[in-house]
Amino acid sequence: MLMQLTVSGLSQGAIYALIALSLTVVFRATTVVNFGHGDFVLGGAFGVYVLVVMLGLPFLPSAIAAIALMFACGILISRGFIDPIKAGPHIGFAMMSISLGYIFRGTTRSIWGREVLPMPRVFDIPPIFVGDLVITGDAMIISGTVAILLAGFFVVFYKTSIGKVIQAVYQSERGATLIGINVKRFHDMMWGAGLAMGAVAGILIAPISLLHPDLGAGFLIRGFAAMTLGGFGSLGGAVAGGLILGVTEQYAGAYINTALIDITSYLVILVVLVVRPSGLFGKRAVVRV
């Protein structure tokens, strides 16, 4: 049972990791916590639903189109809604992101109502049995896709000149501006990247969870919990936090009480903030006086 729970937890955790990472990318670049992200995660899935189920297009190009669309949405949000309120109070960012998320949710509700929509399974891989252990096709697809995506992300981030630019802006926006980096465009790109990565998570989970407009809230809180656990602003921490959270939910549900699954995220946030506010991999804030 332990192994099965671990495999299942890692598969769920991979989704949480991707969501937490996409939240962190935007947070690190812009200091905005995107409270509407749960709804944007579903944006990719709804995009694929429209293209594949309603228009009958093939999955892979549809998925790429949906991810590109969410990337464009991210840029639009950055330019149209976040940049204009930059000079205002920071709370305005939170209000704006909540509003945008709810508008997105309301729009999907007005189109599809409360209908629970089935998403087609594109890669129907048979499960692998190792004794009692079942490794499902979904788990393999999710874990494999997320692993490839994360590997690509971290290679770009740490090994390429683009990554160096990103790191430079992360460290000092003013310094980056002085050496000629267009910070405003960088913010646009990070919003785009954040929403695109979230869209991938939505596309991967929707065939399992089915699709309905209210699904995003659960993903958002899990993303926040993974961020908190890994350490605010830590990219690697977000990934580790997501995986640990996924496994913890399974262990808590199986060995303590299934009612704990739903509140594991909240417990994690609570415990981490009290015991180790910087999380597992976050840097402790040092204030010079």
Partner: peptide, 17 residues
């Protein structure tokens, strides 16, 4: 009596029990 809340996307723990 097992709990499974709205929005959960996995029932592994419940099913294994």
């Amino acid at each position: 009596v097992l709990a499974m809340e709205r929005g959960q996307t996995d029932a592994t723990a419940q099913v294994l029990k």
